[in-house]
Design a protein around this nucleic acid. Structure first.
Lengths: 183, 183
DNA sequence: CGAAATTGCGACATCCTTGTCGCATTCTAT
DNA sequence: ATAGAATGCGACAAGGATGTCGCAATTTCG
């Protein structure tokens, strides 16, 4: 059967997760499609990368939807549960779209950058709400806390890659470490 | 005056920190040396990258020396101070040799990988010693804790790059977050 | 001062990647 | 069944990066 455009994106993401510097030829092969066909869907490499970026951002947005981030920000209620749900959900997304954690090519597209900033801003709002509610300590800059989440996701990714921890332990380790630290 | 081999390595590191995908031509220019001369010092790109890797590992080893990691491991004393010193020192090294945090090319050289594992093993020993001494909680896998440090260094790097935190605050933020978490 | 080593410089070949095209084949939908 | 669209395939050109070389100029060192 034919390989849809969406499938190509999916498989490209999978492959780029393992070989971040893969060429268009490699990606095409991994997607089960001829190189020319890949170019018919995405005229240039950058176009493909940007498409992957959008896919990742859609998943990110879906996370925000599913955990009810908007409602929490509006009402100021259930911020703690929302924060926990956000962290756990991030693990899944980061595992699948982790390439975006490193891929600097995504940072080229202005719209994508703006979208990322919007999404990040919402999470920072949540962090601030948690600080006001006493769920998170207020003496740490919100943006630092946000970057901490990012860094710990990198740690999760690395731990899984090296086989240091079991997948089912990652939620607990991330939450515990993020919230209570290591001492 | 002539540019020594060591200077080339230093400047190459500086430049690759800002442009991780720089070509040999770019690196040569940044080092103030003709491209042919760069190739006379390092026949191939991989050879250069490996040299940068060794440089980074030397700095890493020096950190272990300066904080007296060996003595702490042997005697089991002052493990807490040693841990703190290690974290703070890592910030400096990570800032200078941060490219190695991402650079996958370093992972090609077997000797370099082995050296990194040795150095990492010593830090894990320290973590375990801290757990035995009650300085670190014992319910987290030592390797996870080690990866946490790595992840938080990524967070520091990112925070500085984006201007989210002041340089002089990084030590405090890293220590606080690592030890006591965010809640 | 003079020989040896090092560097700058430009040229060259090679390889890899990217992007495009024409054509034959296959699939799809009417 | 058949027309139109999508795909596979191979070839091509262009561009960039890598690595090498010879030669002239410069530096270094005895």
């Amino acid at each position: 059967m034919a390989v849809s455009r969406e499938q190509i994106v999916t498989r490209a993401i999978e492959h780029l997760n393992q070989a971040p510097a893969a060429s268009m030829a490699e990606i095409a092969q991994a997607a089960g499609v001829h190189r020319a066909t890949l170019h018919r869907h995405f005229a240039t490499r950058e176009e493909l990368i940007v498409a992957l970026g959008w896919r990742a951002h859609e998943a990110w947005q879906r996370v925000h939807d599913e955990i009810g981030l908007d409602a929490a920000l509006r009402t100021g209620e259930r911020v703690e549960e929302t924060l926990h749900a956000l962290l756990v959900a991030h693990i899944e997304v980061a595992e699948e779209h982790g390439f975006a954690l490193t891929e600097h090519l995504v940072g080229i597209n202005p719209e994508l950058v703006r979208r990322a900033e919007e999404l990040e801003a919402r999470e920072i709002e949540l962090i601030e709400a948690c600080q006001r509610a006493g769920v998170l300590r207020a003496d740490l800059p919100p943006r630092w806390v946000s970057n901490t989440v990012y860094g710990l996701l990198v740690a999760v990714r690395e731990s899984l890659r090296r086989g240091d921890v079991a997948r089912r332990d990652t939620s607990r380790l991330l939450l515990e470490t993020f919230l209570r630290g290591t001492s």
